[in-house]
Design a protein around this nucleic acid. Structure first.
Lengths: 207, 207, 207, 207
DNA sequence: CGCTAATCGAGACGGTACGTCTCGTCTTACC
DNA sequence: GGTAAGACGAGACGTACCGTCTCGATTAGCG
């Protein structure tokens, strides 16, 4: 027993193609115009869609951009480079590569800024973008444990706390380096940063 | 040899009080409205000033908000709590306290977002906000060296690289924890994070 | 030999009830909203009918309102009050009573306004509303002739011209009094106006 | 002592040229598009003016069109053709000539239609358009009295009632003939109508 | 009893205009 | 020349209807 599926609702069904066209047009407009000059009317035009169609699906610019940007980060993959350090360096460089794309830089920071005054938006960002990528941390740890680089987890709650800390440090540092300091996130930096992180974790863990 | 000072120019001199009133009104508007709903006309009204006066001094919303927010971060002080770890924890908590204020959260992230498409703005942010606070890292290191907690610097360029890395990690992690993860930056978190940072630096340094 | 009647066409026949419901809903909406805020979507909803059903029967708002209003004026009856003057006064008051109803005021003038740029619409108004009521003039004259108040018609074309003139004067004056001057069309006014009309006709006729 | 005149108010004064340009553009748009397809955005564009400028002066389409149309009827003049009948015929033909212009036909009837649901608008129409033209009736009567065609007025209230009646009959009949019956208001019709009116008035007056 | 075909409801679609808002500039009079 | 006030041209906002379309579900007559 489920509530009416989309297929069985009366009336003309929503166009599936429109959603994809709108999100692609949003990213295109972010590249060309940036967040602040992006207008929903322009996005609709680019997508070959009426403004009403866009507003029927998203309640505003913020929500639309979250969805458009979220798809970008789903491209992240944990590479298997043999050691935990090398795996982390790989993810850091991939993350930096995405942040180098104008649609990601502009869109991501803007919605984070907006989310400081809109709890629903902040939750949406966490669900659609941030928490989805914690999988990378979990996957990396599991792989390192399989290799024998890390011991198995003893305590579940401690484990979750550590995952969050690692995530804040990696994501925060890379974003700050790339967008605020505006210095290159290259292999050398990634190596230095990864060393700091792993040594810090190891020492803190044995303490 | 200077170009005409303000005092010696012909005509009515600019009101000094106006600048302060405008910046204060900007912060007030950021608290109440947030970045995206803040309008320059409204700021001018709050400051009891004509729009023309505002535009004569700042070229736009971005520049105005950078200046309004920059003043907030100048309140940061490195406390002397006896050990390097305690000093860092103190700064982290102060930083988090500022980020808890709506005018800082909303304004800072928004101008960073705008700066992704405006190099002049990014430089202005770095000069007015970010680089000014690197003094805290330098001060902290000097104090730790005086205490004998850290060895004297051997290499100037290596030293600069390390300062940047520390700054990216601290600022990035705290911002991410506070604004994106939206979890509390409390004493416990500060202790764990500081431990990770210092152990990581120590190990990486000796390597 | 006729083209396929409705009954013999294949497929589901049109609902007869829908037409009446739509016209009633149109009048109801005219009362509540007036012409300019009346929307076909709202009429359809009020009539419990889909927009498609409405558009299948009427090509637009103008045509729909003409039909909805036309039914109102078919209520007019020539009373038998014993003299021509009294009969005319009776019709004038009936006409004014209809014009006092909001659905008639608003709808009638609006479609006349629209008809200034749409010849087909003007013809439709004449056929559905105006010319149908000329019966009242003809009936009144015939009755007056039977009573001996008026001589029999001598000239057919002259007669038609007079009917048109009478109609323009009566309809025009009552509408102007009621809708533009916004003064009451009461028994006193009707008596004065009828006197002017009949004396004018009598004198002009004998000239 | 008056409340602040326009000239002494602070700030930039409103452009006088804009008002004229907007009213002219409104009439132009009425000619080309008619009432229902006239849009305020289009009028603003034609006038070389921003939409805000238009809305600052008029609250909506109705008020704008009343003012635009009112200017047309101020062109009416009472000709001196030697006799009262000839004078009336002249005014009737002038009135018909104005009603033949599309901007007058379309605009006038539409605002009258709207005024059936908006008392403020109806008053505005009466003040700006209708009552201003009663001057023609008064002027015509005075001239006829000077010529000896009519006796001097005995009773003021009776006189006002008669002026209103005459005005409703003339304006109503001409409008109905021109716009609803859509028959020509030519010299022959004007002669017949004027005869009816004057004979009716004379007979009713002596009664 | 199925087949065919037009109807019905619902509601999404591409458009267009709405009336409001903010932008950054300009034009006043006053100081 | 700086200032407060406020009008200006420009253009985006989010909403409301337009008239059309695409659905699945009726509902008739004909074979």
């Amino acid at each position: 027993m489920q509530s009416r599926t989309a297929a069985s609702r009366p009336g003309r069904p929503r166009s599936a193609a429109a959603d994809a066209a709108i999100l692609a047009a949003t990213r295109e407009a972010l590249v060309e115009l940036g967040w602040s000059k992006l207008t929903l009317g322009d996005v609709a035009t680019r997508a070959g869609v009426a403004k009403t169609t866009l507003y029927r699906r998203w309640s505003g610019k913020n929500e639309l951009v979250v969805d458009a940007v979220a798809e970008l980060f789903d491209e992240l993959r944990l590479p298997d480079r043999g050691t935990l350090a090398a795996d982390i360096e790989g993810v850091v460089l991939q993350f930096a590569a995405i942040l180098a794309r104008p649609e990601a830089r502009s869109g991501l920071m803007a919605v984070v800024a907006e989310s400081t005054r809109d709890d629903a938006l902040r939750d949406r960002i966490r669900e659609s973008i941030v928490d989805r990528q914690k999988r990378l941390v979990l996957e990396g740890r599991a792989r390192a444990q399989a290799r024998g680089e890390l011991p198995p987890e003893p305590d579940a709650s401690e484990s979750a706390r550590t995952v969050d800390l690692i995530f804040d440090v990696i994501a925060g540092a890379v974003v700050h380096r790339a967008l605020v300091s505006a210095e290159p996130v290259d292999a050398a930096w990634a190596r230095g940063f990864t060393a700091l992180l792993l040594e810090g974790l190891a020492a803190a863990g044995t303490a």
